[in-house]
Design a protein around this nucleic acid. Structure first.
Lengths: 249, 249
DNA sequence: CGTCTAGTTGATGGGAATCAACGTAAGTGG
DNA sequence: CCACTTACGTTGATTCCCATCAACTAGACG
């Protein structure tokens, strides 16, 4: 078992008591402000939100929220990658997504989290009490609208992934994953030929509905064919067109 | 090609002009009012919404909305079953869900529908202009909240289905589908031993990520083992516990 | 240095896809 | 009314993609 969040955040909470000015400044200079739900807020509301949000910094493989836990905290990712997964009773794991900077985690219908979220690499995030956020939303309809758009967007992503899991072959799945990941980072202003893959092959496999070995073999295959090059913690795309062809839109 | 909705609705629109009182009455006596998004509305708002909503009645296999179409209409299902699907460029189809009475169809992030929706059997629904609905929502925050809950609920369903598609065996998929369908109808006040399946085996297969033959074989297998009985347009559950065991949580 | 995790590659087997045949029911038109 | 067609469902035979099992390498770390 890996560490939990509590130990880190409690120390931070104590620090925050005397540092709300600093916290506010962090929001104003937040690198993903324009990409996150905070983009919906005016300066005044942003300052108000910053007063109820707590910056957290997480080591790799730390659990933010556990499937089934009461959802009294939500997160906005600032940097790093967070893996979202669900378990079957016998231990089989399905990764349902990767949250990147700007993404929002944790809203659910009832009061229990629908999935587990854990950091893949070092992650910076903003933690907000759920009730505080909901009270805040009462007076910030723009934020409520933004969260709804967010949910609709996540739903569209989920539907696309159902097509992948239900209909695509192993190589189509891997190619699609690489291209999706690339375009998500591109929107965040990242480079484009290099695709960072901080997660393990197992994580990718559990996301794509195939085994570790299949992910490895498929990537090796692409490398052998000159479509890409395997590099530490990622790939370098050599032939984008063929990769796109392999993904089968 | 099957018929489109336009021909039906235009005639109805003409009729509606002189029948808004009837329309309003229909909302007040709507059988799924308490299950649909309309449950969020007070009598006054319901009457107001009924003025912008148009009842429609659809024959089987009629397309309500097409993937990619501009999303200027949304629907609330009153009776019947609607199949939601997405296509890959080469024609492979993934069914991403079935909308039942009380379900809401059509909201998306941008202005294009993310999926195709077509009636499975005879369907009654309420059609609402998207822009009219969004204007209405400005003055009905309860409805906006309800739609957000709805989106979150759909997202949770989608995530569960990703687990099914990514990790479950064929027989687990079929068993899960039957139980899910049963509990959805149960919430609508339907019986419980008989599960209605108005969709084709092909539809089920495309939903579960398996072929027609596999669905057929799996159902026959359950019938042979005495778990259920195949009846026209459905199954009769004989051994609920074993069906639940076969579904693997 | 031993241990552990992650990744790769090879050999083998299995579960579901594919290919194929057949039965049934509902139209359709002569 | 009946031959003909078409859609749907079922079952059997065969194939194949990927899972499984297994061996090995490389890097991280105490």
């Amino acid at each position: 078992m890996h560490g939990t969040l509590t130990a880190h955040t409690e120390a931070r909470d104590l620090a925050r008591m005397n540092l709300s000015a600093v916290t506010r400044q962090q929001c104003a200079s937040c690198p993903v402000r324009s990409k996150s739900i905070c983009a919906a807020l005016c300066e005044t509301d942003l300052a108000a939100l910053s007063r109820i949000s707590h910056p957290v910094r997480l080591q790799p493989k730390v659990t933010l929220v556990e499937e089934g836990d009461s959802a009294d905290e939500v997160f906005s990712i600032v940097s790093g990658t967070v893996l979202l997964s669900k378990l079957l009773s016998d231990g089989r794991r399905q990764v349902i997504g990767f949250a990147l900077p700007g993404d929002f985690i944790g809203l659910s219908v009832n009061d229990a989290h629908a999935f587990t979220a854990q950091s893949v690499d070092e992650v910076k995030a903003c933690r907000v009490g759920r009730q505080a956020l909901e009270e805040f939303m009462e007076h910030a309809p723009a934020l409520a609208r933004r969260l709804h758009q967010n949910a609709c967007h996540d739903l569209a992503i989920a539907q696309d992934h159902m097509v992948l899991l239900g209909k695509k072959s192993a190589s189509e799945r891997v190619a699609t994953f690489l291209l999706d990941h690339r375009s998500r980072w591109e929107k965040l202003g990242g480079a484009s030929v290099r695709i960072d893959l901080p997660m393990t092959r197992q994580d990718m496999g559990d996301y794509l509905g195939v085994t570790v070995e299949t992910v490895s073999r498929t990537l090796s295959g692409f490398a052998r064919e000159g479509v890409l090059m395997l590099i530490p913690d990622g790939v370098r795309v050599l032939d984008l067109e063929r990769l796109q062809a392999a993904a089968q839109g």
